[in-house]
């Protein structure tokens, strides 16, 4: 077991003929992900790497291959419509890797995705990996190992650093999820915490947050009320300078300064054990999973 993806995941890659899409499609296939189709409008009928059929639309790809998950590598200007196309075609799990999607676009994408009963991960995220089964996105497969720790993170390379420490010390992972750091994202900490809590193959959870916003504080409240598995947390940006701020709206809406200190306090109050350094994950998780 795992969350969101596993051996049964049949993936369609939107933007498979692009530079990034092609590179990562190959990497995912080498890892063992079941890449069943690619989509690039205008390139339908081609074969990617001589074996993966390319279609003009996601609807065509589903009809011909039975794809049940999608990953998006199209440029920012087309990313919002690519997400909506996947949702409209009936894909229930959509991962958007694209960085730089205008936030205004996302305000229209999210209600649409929900109305179709789909889940979006991202945008601007590294994707996710269920070690030994399937990887969707760009997380390097070789640093992960199968096991029973679930990991959810707002950042990319910091995730790799922490996973690397776990794997090096013989602690494997059930699923590692990068939710992305954009203001409007499809899947947040709480969605992942709930899924890990419900996943019988996950024994402990690692949550990597950052300064800014109040997502970590809300996640901490959720942990206090609904998560019985041990949770270990980290907040990056303890030494980040306070930005020069324009206007008052940001402070009014969140009622918070979003500092690392405030977030770490929220973690501790919720019984989450706080890592001071990435390497601390080994000691804090060790023996819990």
């Amino acid at each position: 077991m795992s969350i969101f993806i596993d051996r049964s995941t049949q993936l369609v890659v939107q933007g498979i003929t692009g530079r990034d899409g092609g590179f990562h499609a190959k990497q995912m296939m080498e890892y063992g992900t079941n890449v069943v189709a690619g989509v690039t409008p205008g390139k339908g009928g081609q074969k990617f790497e001589g074996k993966v059929p390319v279609f003009h639309t996601v609807a065509d790809a589903i009809r011909e291959t039975g794809a049940n998950a999608s990953v998006i590598y199209v440029p920012p200007a087309g990313a919002a419509s690519a997400v909506m196309e996947a949702a409209d075609a009936g894909i229930k799990f959509i991962v958007c890797i694209t960085e730089g999607v205008p936030v205004m676009d996302m305000t229209r994408v999210m209600p649409y995705v929900r109305s179709k009963g789909a889940r979006l991960l991202g945008p601007n995220c590294p994707g996710l990996i269920t070690p030994g089964e399937s990887k969707v996105g760009i997380i390097p497969g070789n640093i992960c190992a199968p096991g029973r720790v679930g990991l959810v993170s707002r950042s990319g390379t910091l995730t790799y650093e922490v996973v690397h420490h776990l794997t090096k010390n013989g602690i494997g992972q059930s699923t590692c999820v990068g939710i992305g750091g954009d203001p409007i994202i499809g899947t947040n900490f709480i969605d992942c915490l709930r899924a890990f809590q419900d996943d019988p193959a996950t024994d402990a959870i690692v949550m990597l947050g950052e300064i800014g916003g109040t997502d970590e504080q809300q996640a901490a409240e959720f942990v206090a009320e609904h998560v019985t598995k041990p949770v270990v947390g980290f907040i990056a940006g303890q030494t980040a300078p306070k930005g020069r701020r324009m206007g008052h709206a940001g402070a009014i809406i969140s009622g918070s300064s979003g500092t690392a200190e405030e977030k770490m306090q929220a973690f501790e109050a919720a019984g989450i054990r706080v890592m001071k350094r990435p390497v601390d994950v080994v000691e804090l998780v060790g023996g819990k999973a």
């Binding site: 950042s155 990319g156 390379t157 650093e161 950052e210 940006g237 980040a240 001071k276 350094r277």
Partner: peptide, 24 residues
């Protein structure tokens, strides 16, 4: 920033975690 350790890192999260570790 005001310190004396220059940092070159890939990725914002790891960059912040690196600065935090310098302080640590």
């Amino acid at each position: 920033l005001d310190g004396n350790v220059g940092c070159v890192v890939n990725g914002a999260g790891l960059a912040m975690a690196t600065m935090d570790l310098v302080k640590y």
